[in-house]
Design a protein around this nucleic acid. Structure first.
Lengths: 216, 216
DNA sequence: CTGCACGCCGATCTTGACCTCCACGATGTT
DNA sequence: AACATCGTGGAGGTCAAGATCGGCGTGCAG
């Protein structure tokens, strides 16, 4: 009655039933799914290749028959996660020409990303492998790419300098990113849409007046 | 001429000259300084206890005579780094009663923190040990504590609900945190004070109008 | 029925990092 | 000036985790 409902061995991640064989392509995507779950739940360092193999219901050698090593596996998942948020951000910015709606749509993208079932955002926003340059480059690229797209809008619509536009855009991305993460951790006191709308309002009030820099 | 100017053994971090003995208290702070340098430069996992000992110019056993283990050493440094930013944030908020100045002062705190020589902010904002609950708790506490103090001001001055105030405050902290980090990574195209003032302006424009929620 | 190919598994190797044991030299005392 | 004491140093143990090798079962062509 204390913990471990029925048969969990480690911490809530029970392996698949060790089913029979499977075609290569299918096995590969299943391995990717299992690896994502384990990396999301435990982080890179705490996740052992044994855990991933057990989670997939296979043995460790098959994992190495599909991926050269742990880092490659992680980078594959990280790449798809990074591309997802960047593409969604691009689509949100292109979905309208009204900047107020742009802000709202982009904020919704971040909140949806964080709220998605798989939790892939943890690879991007809470990675524990930033010492690896390949990982660092991809993680930073999410912020810089999203910010760059936003900065284009800011620059063209306000005439601010490049560096100022970039910094403002990075601020907005940071606001979206960490507020969404802590909204999720907060446990849903506020609806996802309400939270996104609240922070979108904050962001819009912040940038809507530029480039006039002075008022009190 | 390629690399390793004169005598560096690993990667640009040359050890101290293996000087003689030292009183315990002094040795301890020297070990903490050396450990901070190594952890900041390489992250937790990539940093070996040998590296820290070499950096301090002592042998490994003396390290274990001062700290029970690697994690304890890291947590000691992390605690001081977390307390530093939290205390500075508190002081900035208490330094004035004008909310516009409060925002500017708090923003300056984050930029100064990130720009400080030792780079201790990397332990807080870029830790690679978030899988450890002790570390995760401390890292998250920085954001939640700072946000909580800001949320108090927002709540009392606007009458917004608790959850909304907290979320807005977290957004401001996130904005400060990631914009400061990327400003530093950007290489100083903008002055520290200019950057802080720019983002403070963005933040102030965002929150100054609450709680009236509707305008276009 | 028999040989072959394919995918899979148990058991093992190796590396690397955290963490301690025996010798040495400096310091304070008589 | 000689000796006891204590801190220091190099070398080694342990263990976890990434990466790998021979054997097994299944399905199919001949």
């Amino acid at each position: 009655m204390t913990a471990g409902s029925t048969d969990t061995t480690s911490d809530g991640v029970n392996p698949r039933p060790r089913g029979g064989r499977m075609p290569r392509r299918e096995r590969r995507v299943q391995l990717l799914e299992s690896a994502l779950e384990v990396f999301v739940a435990q982080g890179y360092h705490a996740a052992a290749m044994d855990d991933i193999a057990d989670r997939a219901g296979v043995s460790k050698p098959v994992l190495y028959q599909h991926f050269p090593g742990k880092l490659d596996l992680y980078l594959a998942l990280l790449d798809t996660s990074c591309d997802l948020i960047i593409d969604n951000c691009r689509e949100a910015l292109a979905s309208t020409t009204d900047n107020r709606d742009r802000v709202a749509a982009t904020m919704k993208v971040f909140y949806s990303y964080v709220a998605s079932e798989e939790g892939a955002f943890r690879l991007v926003f809470e990675s524990d492998l930033t010492s690896e340059p390949d990982v660092r480059e991809r993680v930073d690229r999410v912020t810089t790419e999203c910010a760059s797209m936003i900065a284009d809008v800011i620059r063209t619509d306000t005439g601010l300098a490049d560096e100022a536009s970039e910094l403002l855009a990075v601020s907005l991305v940071g606001m979206a990113q960490v507020s969404a993460r802590f909204w999720l951790a907060g446990g849903g006191q506020i609806t996802q849409d309400d939270a996104a709308a609240l922070i979108a309002g904050l962001a819009w009030r912040g940038i809507r007046g530029y480039p006039m820099t002075d008022d009190h």
